Computed example of a mutant assay.
Amino acid sequence: MPQRTLLFVLFDGVQSLDVTGPLEVFTGAENHTPGTYRIRTASLDGGPVRTSSGLTLVPDEALTQTPDPHTLLVPGGQGTRSPDPRLTDWLRAHGPRARRLVSVCTGSILLAAAGLLDGRRATTHWAHCDKLARDHPAVEVDPEPIYVRDGRVSTSAGVTSGIDLALALVEEDLDRDVALAVARHLVVFLRRPGNQAQFSAQLAAQTAQRAPLREVQQWITEHPAGDLTVESLAARARLSPRHFARAFREETGTTPGRYVDRVRLEHARRLLEDTSDGVEEISRASGYGTSESMRRAFLKALGTPPAEYRRRFHPASAH
């Protein structure tokens, strides 16, 4: 197996975890299977850079002196807001030569500024998706997933999602056993699928201010198969159905029905990914009642039926 050279691009204002998270993953894989990766870091002039948290990183070399890598990894951070034009120029010239382009968090903004995401589907940190789409209309921005892979280009959302993407790349380069060994060493999940939403249902919605509504939110999450009609939830909050529906939307930013839908979909996806339970059993446990109801919900939200979703994302079905 040929050794792959990985180059991490460093710049002032970089997010340290965007660098060190994936770096630990690939280094762990190299330690497990020596000769797999040659890992380098480089800044524009080869000098130290100061991260957004104040940590100083000392690169191995200057970008102008490094040979074209197999995998070029561009992290994000505050330094992507007003990047050095020389960095954008370097990416524009050298990005197309890499076999694989990877960005973490707002590193995708640098790739887009260099024209490397035109015509591709990509993601970034949820807080910057609108800006990426507005400033670069040639990029198909998907704000939902924790990472997106489009051919040779992979982009990921905020900070820790870079670890998820790096583990997926290690699994692709080597095998699942190596990726699992690295994940265990780092005490992280091996398979957090790329199409998993950046926010869980609880994070996607605002937390209600009033205690009765917060308690209802928590109860929904813990009882997806329960009676989650507006009438039942309103009674639990000791409000009339009309008052409850209005207050829930005002305080959470979504309707009770949409919140319930998201919780049930998230619960079903987790069971499909992490268990061997049958589809019928999962549909009942997630509050759908029948497998056909769950199938319709998956097709509407994800564009794929539950059986195909499991085939893609259940570890036992990965190979």
Rank of each mutant, 00 (worst) to 15 (best):
L7R: 03
A318Q: 10
V279S: 13
G54M: 09
F26Y: 09
G253S: 01
R152H: 14
Q65D: 15
A247R: 12
P69R: 03
P306M: 11
V153C: 04
E171K: 07
Y147V: 03
A307S: 10
V187Q: 13
R134D: 10
D173G: 01
E266P: 04
L117S: 01
L167K: 07
E292I: 04
L233H: 09
P22W: 11
P241M: 08
T41Q: 14
C105I: 01
I39M: 07
G35F: 09
L265E: 00
T64L: 15
L190P: 07
A316Y: 11
V188A: 07
F248W: 10
L233R: 11
R238H: 14
I146T: 13
R92F: 10
G76M: 03
D164Y: 01
T71D: 14
Q196P: 00
V178A: 08
E171P: 01
G289H: 00
V188P: 08
F298P: 07
Y309P: 00
D177K: 11
L7E: 07
G76V: 02
L116M: 01
T64D: 15
R270W: 15
S108D: 06
L55N: 06
S317I: 00
V260H: 01
Q202F: 15
A122E: 07
K300N: 08
P193A: 05
R210K: 02
A318N: 03
T252Y: 10
P212H: 03
V153P: 01
A205C: 05
H136M: 02
S293G: 00
L265K: 00
G95V: 02
M1E: 12
G287C: 02
T275F: 10
G47E: 15
P22R: 02
F313G: 00
A62K: 06
A245M: 09
G257F: 13
E215V: 08
V9D: 08
R310A: 06
L63F: 12
H32F: 12
G158C: 09
T254G: 07
I146D: 03
G21A: 02
L213G: 06
L190S: 09
G54F: 13
A268P: 05
L299D: 14
L186F: 12
R262L: 13
R284L: 05
L63E: 11
R310Y: 07
F189R: 03
R295A: 04
T41I: 09
T124G: 08
A285D: 13
P34E: 04
S52H: 12
K131M: 06
A93Y: 06
R4W: 12
